[in-house]
Simulated assay, not measured.
Amino acid sequence: MRESLGIALDSSSISTALVDADTPLLGSIDEFRHPWGEGGSVPSAPSSARALASAADVAIERASRSHLHPTSVGVTCERADVRDLLPESFSSSAIGNVELVNSLDARLAYLRSVDALAGVSPILAFWPDGSETVIAAIDPIAGTIDSAHRYTSAELLSNSATFTATLDTIVAERDPVPKMLVAMGAPEQTRQMSAVAAERSGLGFTFLGERTQLAIGAALVAAARSTPTSAAPLAVGSGGAAGGAAGLIAGPRRWTPLMLISTLLVLGGLLIGMLFTLAPDNASTATTDPSITENTPSTTVDEHQPENESGDHRTESENADAPGLSGSEWGEIGGSANPPPLFSPPPPESFLPPCDPNFPAAPAGLRRSDPDIPPTSPSPTPDAEDCTPIRQG
């Protein structure tokens, strides 16, 4: 069991969630949601940062009462002024491993933990962000976002016809076609309208009403970053990079004696084979008797050897002793050399799909491209009229 704590600050609340990173499909072990900034009030950045640190201390104390001890903490904060104060706020607490998680990464991690979406890809997911609604084309299996756009919520969710027309426009531009529409943290009153729009567009529908979605996703991302594995590279600052490098270095040293013995055996076999190959067919056996040694000719002519230009026979020993010809070169003259290796051409350059153009105003008024897409997102082209990145959300 590997416990991880997630904390999320949005526009109206502070949420905490304790999850088991080894079994994320079971959901959260313990969660808590505290109202913050309701009624239109916006708390100051220092007070919000202190509130986040206090929420983490309370959640860890609650977990310790059940003999649970989180090994990592993930924090998601949508306010940039509060994020700058988080290192100082958490420095005074007993929490050691704190990871600042992007809200987009937290949503992707949460989607991968939903049992109803197992094996379903790609999908369309939408969630509210202030007075706007974000609709994103997501591949949960790969953990990537292909495109995302913002719409005015009052116009997009005014009726099911407008929402259906907007979904039809997005689906027509996607390849492969999305299989499901997922509502993430959407108001309950939009559930029926979203289900009708999805059915008319030929999509399945899933409503995720979990109020601590960002906290759960932040906990899963923090656990993935802080846990070293042999199959995946370690995250920077996780404290396990040195140990992984030591394992990579110690592995070859352990097999060095066996490799050396194998190499010597192979070389010995090759040497014996070359001696049998280069030895003359009718060469006499060496002896230590001086009388026989004196009567033995220095060279033995093979009757089967081809004649040279002057009609003389040339032995293999003479060929081997010829200056300027080594054993490998003599093998190349004999035609036994292997052809040079062929190099495969480099893969063709992959072209990123163009950035999604602005949708026409008929289905719903498209605000702009959103949000900060990972490097796998499409790059803008001159044809796109408005594709400027916006704030995170």
Score class of each variant (00 low, 15 high):
Ser11Ala: 09
Leu18Phe: 03
Pro297Leu: 14
Pro348Arg: 15
Arg211Gln: 03
Arg314Leu: 06
Asp20Ala: 01
Phe343Cys: 03
Thr71Ala: 08
Ile60Phe: 13
Leu366Ala: 06
Gly6Ser: 02
Thr263Ser: 07
Leu278Cys: 05
Gly334Glu: 02
Val177Cys: 09
Ser230Ala: 10
Ser121Val: 09
Ala118Leu: 09
Ala80Tyr: 05
Glu155Ala: 12
Thr16Asn: 04
Asp289Gly: 06
Arg62Pro: 00
Ser11Ile: 02
Thr300Glu: 08
Ser226Pro: 11
Ala106Glu: 01
Thr299His: 10
Pro290Ile: 08
Thr277Glu: 01
Glu31Leu: 03
Glu99Asp: 08
Thr381Ile: 04
Ala197Phe: 06
Thr299Arg: 15
Thr287Gln: 13
Gly244His: 13
Val171Thr: 10
Thr229Cys: 04
Pro341Asp: 05
Arg211Ser: 03
Leu26Val: 01
Pro46Gln: 01
Pro382His: 12
Ala195Tyr: 12
Ser326Glu: 09
Pro341Ile: 10
Val98Cys: 03
Glu329Phe: 14
Val19Ser: 01
Asp356Ile: 06
Ala197Gly: 09
Glu188Met: 04
Glu329Ser: 14
Asp372Cys: 10
Thr277Asn: 08
Glu173Gln: 14
Thr166Phe: 13
Arg254Pro: 00
Ser298Leu: 12
Ala148Trp: 03
Pro357Tyr: 00
Arg253Trp: 10
Asp370Val: 11
Leu85Gly: 01
Gly237Met: 09
Glu349Ser: 04
Asp81Trp: 08
Pro347Ser: 13
Ala246Glu: 11
Asp129Cys: 05
Met1Gly: 08
Val134Thr: 10
Thr296Gln: 10
Leu108Arg: 14
Pro46Tyr: 08
Pro280Met: 00
